[in-house]
Structures are given as structure tokens and as C-alpha cells.
């Protein structure tokens, strides 16, 4: 409970700030409960930036990236975890260490590639890479797959299943918890990513919410209540999705416990 309180505080603070009047933001010390609730801040925030448009863009991107990440990483992780082949460990290590490459110097050449094929100012550079997997999710899923006893696969093989069948019919259903984690991670990372869309998009109509949030900060000022209201609205759909996705964990457990 205490922990919940601690972790709830930042969000709470955000919510109350989003509901305060300009005068109340002036108060010293800051108040813990708004004297007047200014729901108008939310309406104002929606009007301050093309909120609906940006939200729709963010949703499109997040869906694309999530689908890509789940599909590719579960395949790839299976290849690294459940099949024994020559050179596997070396290639796996290469895949892992790519997460240690600092982005600022590779982004320049990566941009050159996408510019060459004419993908700048489209969603392709933001979504397509997700379909090729990423070191951190491959590693994550691989760790979970390594946990499943070998016997499960062997039993399937004795029953005459080939590799694809084993993957689709036996292993994939057991991967639900890690799939849920990767889906949440990839979706949220995309939802909050600021730099990649900023670099690749040149039209305001294509901007996601993460860039839109920057509009609340100008050279010398921050539109504080509005920023907090917008942030709360940015987070809200994610919370709903999270509550929905949770069921996968529960399901994961009933399936997983069979193996014990």
C-alpha cells in the first residue's frame, strides 16, 4: 500500500496540476488539492494542439510497431532458444550487443538509408524496423523460452511435428506472458518516443502526440497546466490498454502451471 502511494504520487501530482488555475499555481507552498477544478484546462489543451489528429497518428504508429515487434521477436527468439544450430551463440551475442550502440552516431547513417529509398516523411522508418526484431526483445523472449523444459519440444517432435508446427501449436501459446510484455513495451516505447518521429517526419499532420507535447513549451515559458492535462490524456489510453492486456498474464499462468 505504501508503495502504491509512492508510485501513485507523480501521476496524482500531474492530475492536480492539470486542474489548477493560473493563480493557484502561484501559491506557496504548492497546494495538494486544487481549490477550484478547472476542467477547462483539458479542453484548452485539446485546442492548443491538433490533439485528435496527433492521437490518431500515435495510435497508428503504436499498433504497427506492436504487431511488428510481437511477430518478429517471437519468431527470432524461438530460433535462438529452441533450436540448436552451429554458430547460434555467436550470432545471438551479436544481436544482444547491438543494444549497446549509442544512437546519436548511427542515426545519421540510418537516416541516409531511409532518405535514399524515399521513406522520409512517411511512417515506414518508424514501423518497418519493428518487423526485423530488436536485441532487447529478442533477448527477453529468449530468456523465457529457455525456461520451458526441453521435453515439451521433444514430445512434439516424436508426435511428428515439424519445427513450424512445434512453434505455432506448442510453444507460441506458452509464450503469452512474454508476448504481452513485449507488446506493452514496444507499444509504450513507440507511444513515448520523441526523437525518431521528430527526425523522420516533416509534416505536422503526421506528428504523434510525443512531439505535440513539446508544443507546450516555448522559448521562455511552459504552459504548465495545459502540459499536465495533455500528459494525463496521453497516458490514459495506455492505462486502459494495460488493464486489458493484464489478462494475458493470468492466462499465462494457467497454461504455464501445466508443465509443473
Amino acid at each position: 500500500m505504501v508503495m502504491c502511494a509512492c508510485f501513485f504520487l507523480p501521476f496524482y501530482q500531474m492530475l492536480i496540476t492539470s486542474l489548477k488555475t493560473t493563480e493557484e499555481l502561484n501559491a506557496y507552498p504548492p497546494t495538494f488539492w486544487p481549490r477550484v477544478f478547472v476542467w477547462g484546462n483539458y479542453a484548452a489543451a485539446i485546442q492548443y494542439i491538433p490533439f485528435m489528429r496527433f492521437t490518431l497518428n500515435s495510435v497508428i504508429l503504436a499498433i504497427g510497431v506492436t504487431i511488428g515487434a510481437v511477430m518478429s521477436n517471437s519468431l527470432i527468439a524461438y530460433g535462438f532458444a529452441r533450436i540448436q544450430w552451429a554458430g547460434r551463440d555467436l550470432i545471438f551475442f551479436i544481436a544482444i550487443i547491438t543494444i549497446f550502440i549509442p544512437f546519436p552516431v548511427t542515426i545519421v547513417a540510418l537516416f541516409d538509408i531511409f532518405a535514399k529509398i524515399g521513406w522520409v516523411n512517411t511512417y515506414f522508418p518508424l514501423i518497418v524496423p519493428a518487423f526485423f526484431g530488436s536485441g532487447m526483445y529478442i533477448f527477453l523472449m529468449r530468456q523465457f523460452l529457455m525456461e520451458l523444459p526441453k521435453e515439451i519440444s521433444e514430445a512434439a517432435r516424436i508426435d511428428g511435428a515439424n519445427e513450424a508446427q512445434t512453434f505455432l501449436q506448442i510453444i507460441l501459446p506458452l509464450m503469452k506472458p512474454s508476448i504481452a510484455v513485449v507488446a506493452i513495451f514496444a507499444g509504450v516505447a513507440c507511444w513515448n518516443d520523441f526523437l525518431t518521429p521528430l527526425l523522420f517526419l516533416n509534416t505536422e499532420e503526421l506528428y504523434p502526440l510525443s512531439i505535440g507535447l513539446q508544443f507546450f513549451r516555448s522559448e521562455h515559458n511552459v504552459a504548465y497546466s495545459l502540459l499536465m492535462a495533455a500528459s494525463a490524456m496521453v497516458v490514459f489510453p495506455v492505462i486502459v490498454l494495460f488493464l486489458a492486456f493484464q489478462r494475458f498474464f493470468i492466462e499465462g499462468v494457467t497454461v504455464g502451471s501445466v508443465k509443473g
Binding site: P10, W191, L213, V234, F242
Partner: peptide
């Protein structure tokens, strides 16, 4: 779970 998870998805900016 939701409460404990929320802070990790708040925009870093906010």
C-alpha cells in the same frame, strides 16, 4: 498493478 505501472509510462517530459 496499474498504479505501480503508471509512472513508467508517463512521458519523461512531464
Amino acid at each position: 498493478r496499474a498504479i505501480l505501472y503508471i509512472p513508467s509510462i508517463l512521458p519523461v517530459f512531464a
